[in-house]
Simulated scan of single mutants.
Amino acid sequence: MMRVVVIVLLGVHLAYAGTHSLKYFYTGASGDIDFPEFTAVGLVDDGQFMYFDSNIKKAVPKTEWIRQNEGADYWDRETQVLIGSRQVFKDNIQIAKERFNQSKGAHTVQIMYGCEWDDQTGETDGFCQYGYDGEDFLSLDLKEMRWITPVPQGVPTVHKWNNDRADLEGRKHYFSTVCIEWLKKYLEYGKSSLQKTVSPQVFLLQKDPSSPVTCHATGFYPSGVTISWMKNGQEHHEDVDLGELLPNEDGTFQRTSTIRVTPDEWKKNEFICVVEHQGKTVTEKKIRAKNAPDDSSSQRSSFWQWLWNFKSQ
């Protein structure tokens, strides 16, 4: 019989203590696609609080705390900013297609930007990265105050943007000051919900004795969780696949780790799934592995002016 033990590490620290982040993800797409041409998502501490796409043409709140604290003027500004960003992304896709010598097919340009703040040390950081068709295209090195690219097709844009020192200084100010101010404001808005700590539920799932075993942690908040495996008391990393962190509809998160071993190996060894959340160890948790969890239950606008196109002239 397969011997599997679950150790759940729970925590007592508030989510509000530590490093916090404000992130935005913009995605522009072209070609024969069945989803919006442009989408934008905003997240605080990895939890979504706003959404926009080119079909609905409207920025909308996704949490009660932002809905209660920002009125119509805020959402009108966000909407206008994102409507303008859509055209920039359309232009950038066309420019990138020309540089990569592409004329057909579906293509995407993405940007992730935002900032982080450590409320213990006061340290801050910012980031801005562009991608094309899922690969790195451009990134901003704030320490060196310059743009860099891993591909030759990004060089003309890097030269253009690095020659504009006023723009670089403006971006530095945005990421070190403006973005941090908005992050702190959002954290204050959502203090009651963002401070919560919700422990994960852990499920061990296996379709049949020859299938991989999945350790599924779900329903936890904040998002920081570690899932690992031990074999006979030793850390075990072989044939282990860690899944992506995914949001649940109730604002909590889920993540899985799958291990592949033969039934005979299971019988001869003791495997342990270790789930760590917020740093404290609790070992008296009953294993529940009969059924899969029900996942369904469970001045920023100033940045828009820097969503330049990729042209070198």
Rank of each mutant, 00 (worst) to 15 (best):
E181V: 09
N162M: 02
D164G: 05
H159W: 02
P293G: 06
W304A: 14
F175W: 00
Q305P: 06
K58R: 14
L142E: 12
K57Y: 07
P212I: 11
F253E: 03
D45R: 01
A106V: 02
A217G: 08
I272W: 12
V198Y: 00
K97G: 05
D208K: 14
H216M: 15
M50I: 06
G233Y: 02
S85C: 08
Y130P: 04
I33F: 03
R3T: 08
R99A: 12
V41P: 08
E169P: 00
H237R: 13
D125L: 10
C273L: 13
R3Q: 10
R260D: 09
L10C: 13
A17D: 08
E181K: 14
P150R: 05
K196R: 06
S211L: 12
R171N: 11
P61M: 09
K267C: 02
R99K: 12
A292H: 08
T39R: 11
V12K: 13
K143I: 11
G243Q: 00
S85F: 02
F310M: 00
Q234E: 12
T283N: 09
E238T: 05
K143D: 05
T177I: 14
S257I: 04
T121N: 06
N232K: 04
D250T: 00
S199D: 12
I272T: 15
E270K: 08
I287P: 14
I148W: 09
P293N: 06
G42D: 04
D141I: 06
S30A: 11
V44M: 01
T218W: 06
Y16F: 10
L183M: 03
G233I: 07
H13M: 14
M50K: 09
V274N: 14
E265I: 05
T149W: 04
C215Q: 09
E265C: 04
F52E: 06
A15I: 00
D125Q: 13
D76A: 09
I7Q: 15
W182S: 10
W75I: 07
P152M: 01
